[in-house]
Design a protein around this nucleic acid. Structure first.
Lengths: 222, 222
DNA sequence: GATGCTAACGGCACGCAGTGCCGTTAGCAA
DNA sequence: TTGCTAACGGCACTGCGTGCCGTTAGCATC
């Protein structure tokens, strides 16, 4: 849309809806038929992506770790930005500068985050995790933040870089954080093993577990 | 302010600024001198709380874990809500219902989150953590989410319950999640020890470290 | 007590976002 | 050609937010 370019060259405040409509060659009334508001003119259709995420969650493999599924879901958001780098970068320079646009962006991120939290809550409940509601909210926020961090970095570099590679690293960090506290043991990096053990367990068994884990790299959850 | 009650009884959309001003016994122009917008009429002064948080971070003890300090910071937000339960509960029923008010609330949460992230980034950088920027964003989001979760639960129950007790539990979960992956060893619960070791280290040394940790409960970061 | 200063207030008018209403027109089918 | 439908665009209206300015209350000074 031409709106984004007008905002960039003339400023958001100085650009009226009449200007945008005129630049697009349509009437002012028609503009509001296509966009709910002046702000909406530069944002993508989040509703579609939200539906895609919901569908992905419905069809998700329950054997996969919940947080990993959530990461897969939020990756759809990332992809929607990656699919049109030019517009995404332009929009980013606006959302950094113009407060109402930034707020709008933040609000849409919150919508994604709610969908993630809802899915996670369901999974945590069936998994019998303690405090499923809290865990879901926190994990959803962490996943969304990781995604946003990658996205922003990618946008700052003008759409170069391999965003998915960055995202994998970022999601790894989040998944580890939230499976380390709830699960037994998980590899943090290739050369590292994390063991969580009860100190009341016999020392011999502890040592045995540790050494086998170090040797094979396998995960062992009692 | 009388605005919040007007919104509740007549609806946000149906209440004009003239109505609020008339109810408050002041001129319409005066209303806009005290509140930047119609929405702002029901929100507290976040700027003060933000300054308090910044000050707390400036004076913070660097020996404390960064995420714990961030939790202490966001607790000031919680306190600002706790200090006036009536208004907070009323506002909550509005922010749940009215989309623009909810967006405004979300935007203010984002402001807090940015302050947390900035502090955490500084700490993580000086601590030599890997990916300090990412960790800071994710941890800040998690801390904010934990706080919001507690806050919403407290608001749903009409301001009864011990919010600080809930918050302590929630923060514990977050702190554990983010210290387990980043630090050498940390007690997750009283009876648990987490050990992170390089598999390239001699097995004998590993065993020695583990057993001493299990015995004394001390933290040992090489 | 009169005079000048300052700060808050309130009225007025304006620009602009967003909406409802309605006449016009283009495209298509019978 | 006639009738139908859907998109368009003009018009007017409400309401938010702001700039401008006259008024007034409070206070210090001479």
């Amino acid at each position: 849309m031409a709106a984004i370019d007008l905002f960039l060259e003339s400023g958001y405040e100085n650009t009226t809806v009449d200007d945008i409509a005129a630049a697009a060659g349509v009437g002012r009334r028609t503009f509001f038929r296509y966009f709910r508001s002046k702000e909406d003119a530069i944002f993508p259709s989040h509703d579609e992506v939200l539906r895609d995420i919901e569908r992905l969650f419905d069809e998700a493999d329950d054997s996969q770790h919940p947080v990993e599924v959530a990461c897969a879901g939020v990756t759809l958001v990332l992809d929607s930005y990656l699919s049109d780098p030019d517009v995404s970068v332009k929009r980013y320079t606006l959302t950094r500068t113009v407060a109402p646009l930034r707020d709008k962006e933040v609000a849409s991120v919150d919508r994604y985050q709610r969908v993630l939290a809802r899915y996670l809550r369901g999974r945590f409940e069936t998994d019998g995790e303690p405090l499923p509601d809290l865990r879901a909210s926190v994990a959803a926020a962490a996943v969304a933040a990781a995604n946003n961090h990658v996205l922003r970095r990618w946008l700052r570099n003008g759409g170069t870089e391999d965003a998915h590679a960055l995202a994998d690293k970022a999601f790894r960090l989040v998944v580890d954080a939230f499976s380390a506290t709830s699960r037994g043991s998980t590899g943090a990096t290739d050369d590292t093993v994390i063991a969580v053990l009860r100190s009341s367990a016999p020392l011999a068994e502890v040592v045995q577990r540790i050494s086998s884990s170090l040797a094979t790299g396998e995960r062992d959850t009692p």
